[in-house]
Amino acid sequence: MTNIIDPIAEIDEARVGDQDVVIGKSRIIFRRFMRNRTAVAGLFIFLALFLFSIFGGFLTSWDKDTLDPLNIGMPPSPDHLLGTTQAGIDLMALIVDGTRTSILIGLIVGGVSVLISAVYGCTMAFFGGKVDATMLFILEALIMMPAILVVAVATSGSGGLKDLPSWLLLVVVLLFFSWMGTARLVRSLSMSLMQRDYVKAAKYMGVPSRRIVWRHLVPNIGSLLVLDFTRGITGAILAEVAFSFIGIGIKLPDVSLGVLIGQATGQVSSFPWMFWVPLTVMFLLTGSLAMMNDGLRDAFDPSSSSIGRAKTKTAKAAK
């Protein structure tokens, strides 16, 4: 006789008593997320940056291809809110563009890699046996490849990928390397889910395998996938910055936060704003995602530390 207390269930239990309002788990999760102030702040910052990257162009009358010969390498001024580069390009315009590229890369890589890992991991778990062994072997071989070399070869090479814009090329390469860890997680999680009695029950009812995967497995690994999505976005944004910073990621004329930061390293002392402004934006971006991720994890995880927070609250109230 063990007491397995699911706090989510407990919340409901309190309600079951008096009225018949069925609250979906998603609503409870949403509520828990909204209760986490850090996470909500993260969400707002991220949304603000997202809007900035789309509509930020309206904040400046300049665009990133126009030189302002009167203001070359100028610090922030009313005319150029964030200053200009040594070529006389408005930094605000560049940053709007760079942020957009970074977010775009993050969203695509995060989203698509979650999809790939879900499909790959579920397939491994579901078929098991030889299929699983082979796919696992491929997976481990891919993990063994130092990602960086492949990034470098692919982005510098003159192969068939050359015609792609450099940011898209980077997306393809990052995608190639970002899904393996999650695929392994999805595999082990689905394998344990397949051992659950409700999956067995469905099997013994004669429900076809395809339906079991779709109805029982996929929704139950959902929380892992959502978490991995936000983590994947952060990872991709960071990777882009790192690679572009040392000059093997995105290449001009495409602009990204990494390119902007990397370009400015040579003149940090003479044009500090050119370095610090894009760096700050990158921090806000990755930081807000990390804050959200934290809240999401708490919201999904019934045994999370949010109990700790509730405790301090009641303790204060008691005083």
């Binding site: 009695d197 029950a201 929704p219 139950n220």
Partner: peptide, 14 residues
């Protein structure tokens, strides 16, 4: 048909 030991594990929580 079958009835399982752990009533919680036998029902999909979703």
């Amino acid at each position: 048909q079958m009835v399982f030991q752990d009533p919680t594990g036998a029902l999909d929580p979703r």
